[in-house]
Amino acid sequence: MEVIFNHLDVVWFVIVCVLFAGFFMLEGFDYGVGMLLPFIGKNDIERRQMINSVGPVWDGNQVWMITAGGATFASFPNVYATLFSGFYLALFLILAALIMRGISFEFRSKSANRTWRSLFDWLLFVGSLVPALVWGVAVGNMIQGTPIDAQQNFVGNLFTLFSPYTLLCGLAFVLVFIYHGAMYTSIKTVGAIAERARATALVEGVITAIGALILLAASFVCTDMFNNGLSLAAFIIAIVCFIISWICARVRHTGWGFIFSCATVIFVTIAYFAGLFPRIMVSSLNPAWSLTITNASSSPYTLHLMTIVALIFVPIVLLYQIWNYWRFRERISLEHLHY
């Protein structure tokens, strides 16, 4: 306990990393399901199976993103201020997409009209693709560096955010999430759609693996993240997990395949956070202007308070979310279509 309360800024860096890892792991597969929906769902039953497979959990998953945002505000208010005012239009794209996505889940199946449903299926696709891509771009920017001045203000614009490296990050996020979503679909649905999802994962997985290797090489060239050995180790573990996941899927152990694709997402997140530490947003103008766990954090009092809160509530949240997943662990059948 004493170790925890003596290094509160480090602790909160870790907690924020955990929240983002949880967010990417959980929303990763429901973004993936959304991106795959119009392509591998060949009829309405298949599409409804896919949507209902994430039905009881997508909203709870989304709260991981909200909590990651709230926790960043509470523990590193300057990061919250710089990141969201700086990546202003990018964040707008994410929010607009997520609004369309949330509405699509609720509204899609409430009317049995083909045009209505088709419209919301494509909104689900866009609403899942955009946040996956833009969050990838955002993570790439945090590590590669953005124009942040001495007052911690971002002085670039939307186009500053798009470089070959950050676009590659965005693309990698999209590819990994599609694979992750395909694995989830293959374990949660029945019939042709489950098999089609597995087959898609196998083909798409090869492209994803190639993308991951390019990203690994590009990260050596474009960023300093691998100066931290832990970051490199986590990245390599992520790639190994991904290969194991693919092999599991190949031999029809899709349950293990999904577990290892979860691990892939978690280790990629760890790789980026380890590469950032002790910085949170890198300044491309002057390394001294980067936002760090020291110059961007809340007061010791607030961090202390929030640590106690997190120690109590994070385990409780995990318990009932696991209960929820356990309760709804069965594959989707036609009797349980609420969306």
């Binding site: 909203d59 505000f73 929030m306 509530f313 979310q321």
Partner: peptide
């Protein structure tokens, strides 16, 4: 942020998770 962030994070941790999961 030092003051405002805490209740917002508390809201997400204690209320939003509860509400959305259940």
């Amino acid at each position: 942020g030092d003051i405002f962030g805490a209740p917002l994070a508390l809201e997400a941790l204690t209320a939003f998770f509860l509400e959305s999961t259940f």
